[in-house]
Design a protein around this nucleic acid. Structure first.
Length: 425
DNA sequence: TCTGGGGTCCTAGGACCC
DNA sequence: TCTGGGGTCCTAGGACCC
């Protein structure tokens, strides 16, 4: 099940004056990219993953909105609730897609096709959203079918989709016979180019190709997957409650950063975002990765794994600074990112306190300093989180988190009972 | 017009343990 | 002094998905 133009549709629902107009969600700047486009925008050739500059060129009247991901998250949760009413066995993919396992439904004597139509109707009635649904015997065909079920643009005209597409044996054969390799899950530009070099363009061409030969150019895992897909086989299960493996925050700057200080400032903000996200989800991370992309396209990463759980911005920043420090800043930094992985539940994660509190670290290694900070600040952070839960996000902040704007905004909203009346004070 | 930000998984080499 | 084969974990990079 795959929602139609999800982000753009939510924007239109929240602002009906946008209805019927070319709307896109994405970055507005020179380095912006389109994340979602309404069908009115698609008639001009606007597509997701396209640069905003190009989208505007194709459609000068395009309305580009910045994206409100918390709002999309709310819609996504309600979408999942509708799915859950049908079956508990579903697996989200991003905010706007789910795979459902309907075999138990079929065992109960219900017709999966009818269930799909019902689900589509309730999505329209309750959330005023549309979607395409593919019903098939595995994920490979279900995914292809959900795309086939959607509306499409042909010759500048919008053609309604069927909404629900059922894949029977004849359809399976036809698709395997006619689709290009690029249509397969996991085949992007790089893999398609490698296959092309082997003379493999269509799914049909993969039939009977030796997996070992294929493995030499695309790797053993991809080779096995491609051979299976070409035979219409896909044994991936619908997995509920996949645990989160990593989370992070990255930014592409409208103007690239020059110098260590600029990088440090950005890193500090990112450490705050990542730390808060970890704590919101009651997770700690053992591995931290700093990602740097320069103006010339060169991208490097540095990561470190520590022997304890991280969820404090001070500790995160300490490590992040050390990692960033090992990257030679030869040019301007276009993108900076901070990613946390090796995630585990915070509950039960022991924290080793140093005694007495505030004593100097035994050693100057960034990891030891980070560990000391993590321990010392854990209780303080919990208190800050609790204050924010009760009195709002802006009720309390560390000095380092406050910008001039932040103070001003908070004061204007009257949420700063003890803060300075004069934001410049 | 060369391009975001949220993620997942794979690969290859190295260090280390038994 | 040199050597296997099982395994785990870490690091860096790449490809892909929405």
């Amino acid at each position: 099940m795959d929602l139609d133009a999800f982000f753009a549709s939510v924007e239109v629902l929240d602002d009906p004056s946008l209805a019927g107009r070319p709307v896109a969600v994405g970055g507005a700047g020179e380095r912006g990219v389109i994340a979602s486009a309404s069908y009115e925008a698609r008639r001009y050739g606007v597509r997701s993953a396209m640069s905003t500059v190009r989208a505007r060129r194709l459609c000068p009247s395009l309305i580009v909105l910045p994206g409100r991901f918390e709002r999309y998250g709310e819609y996504s949760r309600r979408f999942h609730e509708l799915v859950a009413a049908l079956t508990p066995v579903y697996e989200p993919l991003g905010l706007d897609e789910v795979f459902c396992d309907l075999r138990s439904l079929a065992r109960l004597g219900a017709d999966p096709l009818e269930a799909a139509h019902d689900l589509r109707r309730s999505l329209a009635d309750e959330l005023h959203l549309r979607c395409g649904i593919g019903v098939a015997r595995n994920k490979l065909f279900a995914k292809l079918a959900s795309k086939a079920a959607k509306p499409r643009i042909e010759g500048g005209r919008l053609l309604e989709g069927e909404g629900v597409v059922w894949v029977d044996a004849t359809t399976e054969e036809r698709w395997l016979e006619t689709l290009p390799v690029r249509a397969l899950w996991g085949v992007g530009p790089a893999t398609a180019a490698k296959l092309e070099r082997l003379g493999l363009r269509a799914v049909r061409d993969l039939r009977g190709v030796d997996a070992a030969t294929l493995a030499r150019s695309v790797g053993p895992s991809m080779a096995a997957t491609l051979v299976a897909f070409a035979a219409g086989e896909d044994d991936r299960e619908v997995v509920t409650d996949r645990p989160l493996k990593s989370l992070g925050h990255e930014e592409t700057f409208a103007r690239s950063l020059v110098g260590r200080d600029a990088v440090s400032g950005a890193l500090r903000r990112q450490a705050g975002v990542v730390a808060r996200t970890l704590r919101e989800r009651d997770l700690v991370a053992r591995t931290l990765t700093v990602l740097v992309r320069f103006d010339d396209g060169l991208q490097v990463s540095r990561s470190q794994t520590v022997g304890y759980g991280l969820d404090d911005e001070g500790a995160l920043l300490e490590l992040a600074e050390a990692l960033a420090g090992s990257v030679e800043l030869a040019g301007a930094v276009r993108l900076l990112g901070l990613h946390a992985s090796g995630l585990r539940a915070r509950a039960g994660e022991g924290v080793q306190l140093r005694l007495p509190l505030g004593a100097p670290a035994l050693d100057d290694a960034p990891e030891d300093r980070a560990r000391a900070r993590q321990a010392e600040r854990a209780a303080l952070r919990d208190a800050i989180d609790e204050v924010r839960r009760r009195f709002g996000r802006d009720a309390l902040a560390t000095a380092g988190e406050l910008t001039d704007d932040g103070v001003e905004v908070a004061t204007q909203r009257g949420r700063h009972p003890f803060g300075p009346a004069d934001p410049t004070a």
